[in-house]
Design a binder for these strands. Structure first.
Lengths: 179, 179
DNA sequence: GACTACCTGTAGCAACTGCTACATTTCGTT
DNA sequence: AACGAAATGTAGCAGTTGCTACAGGTAGTC
């Protein structure tokens, strides 16, 4: 079945799928290789080192995330920032985003520790998200750029609360947004 | 120097200090033991297993965090929610909180993965923080509970942006808070 | 066919992982 | 002083970690 030659480009999707399901921090070469239909030997060959693998993987995941955002059904414009944030939270809570969010918090943790690759990936994903948020603000928003940032803070905060099992805190907070 | 008998209570502070500096996810028994002046053998003896250690450590860190919050100098009440959030962000950015925040994102990641111990620790820390936030809202706030939640979302979101190296995004977002 | 560049499997190494068996010391109690 | 429980040191085990040396295979080009 897996008889064609592999390359980083053919490996990355399978590796990303494995990482989305099992996490990135604890991923070691042999399980990753098995999931991608190769050997640890070949992963090192293609990516030079595990650091190289992780860096490539983070870039790939950031790209996947941007594309996933673009494909998420565009809601018709919301009337207020509050409503906008609530809709975006609902989208972020959709099951298809759950693996991304699990991975997202790992990436945030890595970035907080100062790792450059994690930080670059996180910044890329956040930039996509900010742009997407800005595009979904109410069309009459007085300051879309600042509004998108405020909404992003609130939505990300809510998603964090979700991760902690405190979803209601996020909902109550968003309900208190002006609008 | 370290000739007295050890117990979980005497070990936990040193273990927590090590974890605050070096992270929790990658902490293994031998380095932890060395930092606490013991052996891996004794860590297992006192905490039964590494899971037991981590659970105890997470509880301890949550307690430390509550106490650290109580000791953070209480600002005089802010005039608006926005000003309140901005002050709280400034406090969260103080150097003394940096190790806590690094660890915090690790805990969030662990909680997002569904680990019960991480989730409990995170919820405890978040509860402390919500109460503290509520106590620092403007005294004339119409709905302190909801307000504290909104401020928490915004401040946590800003701190996340800080972790990603996007501090300005947090600042711009907070500036757009009503008030 | 020969040459070359890329790709891959096998085997293994040194370090580290959590944990344990066994022996010994330390201490409070009697 | 004697006893039992709690605490500790030494040594090691089985499994995993990232990575490598070596030997081949596989393709395209001349």
């Amino acid at each position: 079945m897996e008889n064609s030659r592999q390359s980083p480009d053919t490996l990355l999707p399978k590796l990303a799928a494995h990482v989305l399901e099992h996490g990135l921090a604890g991923a070691s070469l042999r399980p990753l290789a098995k999931a991608a239909g190769t050997s640890d030997r070949m992963l090192i060959y293609h990516f030079k080192s595990k650091d190289g693998l992780v860096t490539a993987l983070l870039e790939h995941v950031a790209q996947m995330y941007s594309q996933a955002l673009e494909m998420a059904w565009p809601t018709e414009p919301a009337a207020t920032r509050r409503e906008c944030a609530q809709r975006l939270l609902a989208i972020g809570r959709a099951p298809m985003f759950a693996p991304f969010l699990r991975l997202w918090w790992e990436i945030v943790a890595g970035a907080a520790k100062g790792d450059a690759a994690y930080r670059a990936s996180a910044a890329a994903m956040m930039d996509s998200q900010l742009a997407w948020f800005e595009a979904h603000l109410p069309p009459d928003d007085p300051d879309p750029k600042a509004g998108a940032r405020l909404v992003a803070l609130a939505v990300e905060g809510s998603l964090m609360m979700d991760a902690l099992g405190l979803g209601e805190v996020g909902e109550a907070g968003l309900a208190a947004l002006e609008g």
